[in-house]
């Protein structure tokens, strides 16, 4: 009985990792955005469960922010951009799906081994949550380096930030300042990205970052 709350927290954090893996091999932008929305929902549930366990009401607010901004508003806005730019077809990946998945599994193993060994003294809830969070962060990074499309890089970045929020929520009693600022910075980041996407579109008629490589400063 005493294990149940812990198990449930791990289930939620684990589902976040699973969804990160799902994101890695989505090759269509619209599907990718759907998985990202699910990722944000899982994050929100996980943070809410942490709020319940730690009896920290301010974490409910973080969960609500995650649900509203990251599960609803941002995916909707991004899919509008994707529709308007007519790039919902295929996602170009730099590396194939199989090597990416293998790299992802390697990263997950690495982070779990690392965290479990280093945090032997810490509170069990926090420590396993932290291992999952690091996995999500690393998978987000992996996604950012294997994608060339600006929109999927942004999604990779946001999934990385989801991992950070998971870690922050798992750290018992971490001050609210940080959580709100994280959520806020994502919002700012989104605005920045929105501006950039708009301008990239304006100039190149594509959001493929590969096209930008052709205009690198020192060629010619």
């Amino acid at each position: 009985m005493t294990h149940l709350p812990l198990d449930f927290a791990h289930l939620l954090a684990g589902s976040l990792v699973l969804l990160s893996f799902l994101m890695i091999y989505q090759d269509r932008l619209s599907a990718l955005l759907d998985v990202f929305a699910a990722h944000a929902v899982a994050l929100s549930a996980s943070v809410a469960w942490q709020a319940h366990l730690q009896q920290a009401p301010h974490l409910y607010l973080t969960a609500l922010i995650a649900l509203l901004f990251k599960a609803l508003i941002i995916p909707m806005a991004l899919s509008r951009i994707v529709q308007r730019l007519r790039i919902h077809r295929e996602v170009e990946t730099v590396v194939g799906t199989a090597p990416t998945m293998l790299a992802g599994i390697g990263l997950a193993a690495l982070s779990i081994l690392l965290m479990m060994r280093l945090t032997a003294g810490a509170d069990p809830l926090a420590r396993e949550d932290l291992a999952f969070a690091l996995t999500v962060v690393l998978l987000g990074l992996l996604m950012m380096v294997t994608r060339r499309n600006a929109v999927s890089q942004v999604v990779g970045f946001m999934s990385l930030e989801n991992g950070l929020i998971l870690a922050a929520a798992g750290a018992k009693g971490m001050p609210l300042v940080v959580e709100i600022s994280v959520a806020f910075s994502i919002l700012i980041a989104f605005i920045v990205i929105g501006v950039f996407l708009f301008r990239i579109r304006e100039r190149f008629d594509t959001v493929d970052v590969g096209a930008l490589d052709e205009v690198r400063g020192e060629r010619g």
Partner: peptide, 29 residues
């Protein structure tokens, strides 16, 4: 807003955010 400036800003943004994300993880630790 030249293509070069956008490329530079994008690269800066992506690498800077990754750096800053890693720093936050370190701060949490």
């Amino acid at each position: 807003r030249t293509p070069e400036a956008l490329e530079a800003a994008w690269k800066y943004f992506i690498l800077g955010s990754v750096g800053i994300a890693l720093a936050l993880f370190g701060t949490i630790l």
